[in-house]
Design a protein around this nucleic acid. Structure first.
Lengths: 193, 193, 193, 193
DNA sequence: TATGAATGAGGGTTCATTCAT
DNA sequence: CATGAATGAACCCTCATTCAT
């Protein structure tokens, strides 16, 4: 990459390259030179944009979650069933596209500097699910439940499904979303019919 | 610690130390000296027991999963509902004790040498869940389901719950198991009542 | 030595330092840090120039033999006696300057990665000597001989003399060359007179 | 190897094992455990016999050179030509059997602790050759020569031939000895005929 | 601002040597 | 005397980070 390139490498390019590398090789195994090279700038330039590796990683996560949060914002307000369905689908879809983020985010749980972000992400998602549940119960679409607990479990189930997909590459996202929604709404019990 | 201690450090100690370190700091971030020191032996001695870091990690996983598999073997054969309940509880309980293993096992999905073990673990657990489902459907305890798909989703949900616990330290295991079982059997839908 | 020196250490410096160390302490006993330090760069910088220790050693040998081969190329074509004399002298002289190379090259015969280079060097030198012999026999300067066998023995004698010089530091190079030439041409037998 | 073996491993076995290993893999690359294992005793026992690796190596060389010196002692006293022939043949033969020693002895010239032994070996051999030459000149079998210089060169030639054999595995020992003897006695010059 | 060569601490691993048994 | 597990310094190599250009 000649230093006479016409415009500076967009931050997005850098973050995407980093995301690809982090998620395929892991945080520790990804070298700064690789990110720089992959994004088309020099190591030096990379350090002009990000204080250090952690900083880059943090920026990456923020960037990606922002994106995700925006999509999640406009769920159907009046139909809790549909909202939940869409929320699950959205999660799985995003995981397909951003499998990397999620793997980085959830897998590498030993990068302590990520923890605050993780906490925040959980809180937000938990609140969204809880809102859907609350509204669903009010409208008698859902049975009365321990909202916080159930929200946690639903969040967990979605995360688990995503991990399954990422780690084992098992199943097709669409069907998986349906099954998960089916499980979450009806359960497996006989009386559900 | 003199280099002539009186008795050989039990392998279990080493594996436990390693498990603690791996799960709290991650595989790459854990140094062999730390494991050695923590377990009360020298680096050299550590290498007498394990060919290298990967080998140690592998042994660790095998050791832990064996243990888990044994516990899982005697689930109630005739009551699918109870079997599932117990299976979920068992998983969560073990995660409490072996939170480390699971985090190591599922999180560090970029350690390629772990993949075969992961695959195997998934297959076994998937089969166990599928068996419970099959038997439950036959006995009309569960409604007719796509068994493989549902087994995957249940596996995923449990894994997700476990991760939640591990990563965020949220909730109490007992209650979590109950909620998960409740969700899985009844779903959140109104008609379940 | 600040890590921002003004000019890049020439490869020659590195190779010379390495040569000195290898030949005085042996390959295995020479540490990469020593080479780096001796040449005036850091370990890291050393590894920027050479993939690893073997690679450095290989480069070293190639560098030195190239140099030697060039000198050997212009031997007198029409006077086999002189050619041989000069060839021997050249060998011994070079050994004086590059005692290190030869000791490294011939002594450390247990570095398997050197063997191809050694083989090649032998072939080339053997051919050169054989050519001199052939031409000398044709011109009746030398008596009829088993050319290949004799070439091998002459090669060996020169190598031996060089080693003697290197290992024991015995004798003066000039006189040694003369004696060797004298031995090779006349032998020690009475009838030679 | 059970500690109830009937007799302690003979030192010769140890030295032979060591010789084999040293010469095939080099001094540094040979591990003490390997020597111990190969000779059929434990590391501890090995250290009861030899103070350390150097000491073992030293003992090895002494052992082998003694053996060689004995053989060299009874060369024909009255026929210098035969004596030289036999001396050369003896050297090459011994190299065939003890290629290891020679490679260790001459090749690994960077083991400083070997140097005194090497010096001593050279002196002895040099004297033997010089004696043959002196006697040969007196008897007019050899032409008048600078005895010391020529002895050195002959010693060197023999060493070189041996190395050639060891390093390149070239040629057959018998023929090589003949060629060397031929070269040394007659040279390659025409007038020799 | 951009570059990329240089730095050097630190990691995994080896092995000569010791000494409790 | 014999054993062989234990020791730990030392080696090769990597890579996040810096800074002269």
């Amino acid at each position: 990459m000649n230093h006479r390139s016409f415009k500076k490498v967009p931050t997005t390019n850098i973050l995407n390259t980093a995301l690809n590398l982090f998620s395929s090789k892991g945080y520790s195994e990804t070298k700064m030179v690789e990110i720089a090279g992959g994004a088309g700038l020099s190591v030096g330039a990379l350090y002009l944009r990000f204080k250090n590796k952690e900083d880059l990683c943090l920026a990456l996560i923020k960037d990606q979650t922002t994106d995700f949060n925006e999509k999640v914002r406009n769920l159907p307000q009046d139909d809790p069933g549909k909202a939940l369905d869409k929320y699950i689908a959205l999660n799985l879809e995003c995981s397909l596209q951003k499998r990397q983020l999620l793997s980085l985010f959830f897998k590498e749980h030993n990068l302590p500097f990520l923890h605050p972000l993780r906490k925040q992400f959980f809180s937000e998602q938990h609140r969204i699910i809880a809102d859907i549940l609350t509204s669903g119960i009010k409208k008698s679409v859902f049975r009365p439940l321990d909202i916080k607990e159930t929200a946690s479990i639903i969040f967990a189930s979605i995360r688990g499904a995503v991990l399954l997909k990422i780690i084992f590459g098992i199943g097709d996202i669409k069907k998986m979303g349906d099954s998960l929604f089916d499980l979450v709404t009806h359960g497996i019990g006989k009386e559900a019919q």
